[in-house]
Write a protein that binds this DNA or RNA. Structure first.
Lengths: 337, 337
DNA sequence: CTGAAAGCGCTTACAG
DNA sequence: CTGAAAGCGCTTACAG
């Protein structure tokens, strides 16, 4: 027989199922001797509690559902990794689903997770998600949910995000204090929220430090390697190059590296490059990329903690939005004067 | 009320629970009119089937448990991503667990998955796993299981792996046919199976092509960036440098890049570098790294397919071990003569 | 300290 | 075409 159940154990011992159930859970009702006997048999017949049955009765699954847009983006891999870790510390299992940046998949995933009666939900919406219906469903059912990294505008769920604006200002403060003043920005598109916020941070930092903003140094070309490369080449053809380029992400920074290499400019000797990113990827660069560090592990861990709080309803001092600090890591792509 | 059940629907309609259950599943027993009415109410009250209860009765969970050593290794992220994709095509859910290269976690994860009564298991064991007991447990319970990438020696479960030896021979054949003959190898340690197999491939390729194997060109230093760097520096101090270096993985190749840069050698102009790896990482290199491509998606998809076969017991023509081919991708780190 | 009763939300097999 | 009965493996609340 493939699985041994509590009933099987009860029959062997000639006691009731209840006794077995209690003994297995170390319920104070049961005598030590009985517990010993029950556990012995359980061991013998290879008893594995049927979590499904347990969940049906207990109304809790001790399971958290995770929805990410894409695992191939290593940022999310790291975030998920830390969530899984943190969850298991709290004795929760995790069910991971991937929506591949597709709103339909995302909806389907969330519905499945509801069907599995997860105790809580950790979700990072796809780039295009706009339909709030599934989330209203979640709310109606009182399922605790926390958004991380990205947010669905207009919903009052709790969320954990980075503050790119502050991150950019802090980092550029350091750069400027170090004596740099000619700083350009390879921005994403301003109609994408991260693109806009990072660019805002860039502008604020310059203003704050009394530097003029030169529109020719803000190149809004996109988020991919090729875009960074193109921006670099375009900039190279102008007479006045900046000393530092702030890239909207690491892929764009990589494009700038490729461009610099092609035209024979040395990093950091001839030009300094920095970008929003995270440490593992920064180490892949040569020289290692100076980054405004968005630590996916901090994000993941924080999101899980907030969810736990939400699930235990201990959130008396709820802060609806948790902001994760970004930290400037001065690697080797900018000379420290 | 948070959740609406079949019973709720039945009461509203004054029919039995069975009727509702059948109507919802489009059972031929039920009249179209009744189905319509049931579905209408279901929609109205926001009915979501309780998968847990369903599973308890149906004895199937339509869920596959995945165990990986580490998500921070992007190789596994990609593999998992493709598994999740492929699984959902077959209408299976996936539960992902991460063991962090720790045998204890791994054991715990597998036991949990058994407890959740997953229909099948996809596992990549940790580097140190040696205790076969959990796996014997799995076998005793007749839970279909497929090992991927790594294998636990001595168990006769099905597995899906790469063949590094063939991959190396194929790639080096191309290199040698292209006119190169002085080829070195930055190996891992030979007591680790992947290190050994890749090195064997290197040796075989040279022998096959009638080239002498120079022990001074085989540097077995480890698997990390620093090891590649050290090997490069050591090699650089000798008088005779090879034309090509085959690195045991991409991290070691990266170390070699750093070394080359430091001593002012141009890749691919002064030296060619290649390594075992996969395409996304190779693109991060500058110049892009020539790789013996271990495609994690091919691996993941194949593992899932084998598992599905195993679960459906249709494996009449079972091949116990599925080998995934590696393909040489000639990027920009080696000059094509 | 032990157990009989009832139930979680669903399905299967059978009867009408 | 519809439903009463029994059951999946467990737990809770109550009685003895």
């Amino acid at each position: 027989m493939a699985y041994c159940t509590q009933t099987d154990i009860a029959e062997k011992l000639n006691v009731s199922r209840v006794t077995v159930s209690k003994a297995l859970r170390d319920h104070p009702d049961i005598s030590p001797e009985m517990k010993r006997r029950v556990k012995e048999i359980a061991e013998e017949c290879g008893y594995t509690p049927n979590l499904i049955a347990k969940n049906l009765t207990s109304k809790r699954t001790l399971t958290i559902g995770i929805v990410v847009p894409d695992l191939e983006n290593s940022f999310f891999s790291y975030a998920v990794d830390s969530m899984v870790d943190a969850a298991s510390e709290h004795h929760y299992h995790t069910i991971l689903t991937v929506s591949r940046e597709n709103e339909q998949n995302e909806k389907y995933n969330i519905q499945s997770l509801i069907g599995m009666r997860v105790d809580g939900l950790l979700v990072c919406v796809s780039q295009r998600t706009s339909d709030p219906r599934v989330f209203e469903e979640v709310k109606k059912r009182n399922i605790p949910i926390v958004f991380f990294d990205r947010q669905l505008e207009g919903m009052d769920f709790r969320r954990v995000t980075f503050n790119d604006e502050i991150g950019a200002v802090d980092a550029l403060d350091q750069i400027i204090k170090n004596g740099y003043s000619r700083i350009g920005h390879f921005a994403g598109y301003s109609n994408v929220s991260i693109g806009r916020k990072r660019c805002d941070g860039y502008r604020k930092a310059l203003e704050k430090n009394g530097l003029k903003i030169d529109p020719a140094w803000i190149l809004a070309a996109g988020f991919e390697i090729q875009d960074g490369y193109n921006s670099f080449m375009k900039l190279y053809k102008t007479t006045k190059m900046p000393e530092i380029i702030l890239a909207v992400n690491d892929r764009v920074a990589l494009g700038a590296y490729k461009g610099a290499k092609e035209v024979g400019m040395d990093i950091p000797g001839d030009i300094g490059i920095m970008g929003f990113g995270f440490s593992e990827t920064a180490q892949m660069f040569s020289p290692t990329l100076s980054i405004i560090h968005q630590d996916p592990r901090k994000l993941g861990t924080a999101a899980l903690e907030v969810l736990i709080e939400e699930m235990q309803n201990t959130g008396r001092h709820k802060t609806r939005n948790v902001i994760i600090e970004e930290e400037f890591i001065w690697n080797n792509s900018i000379i420290k004067k």
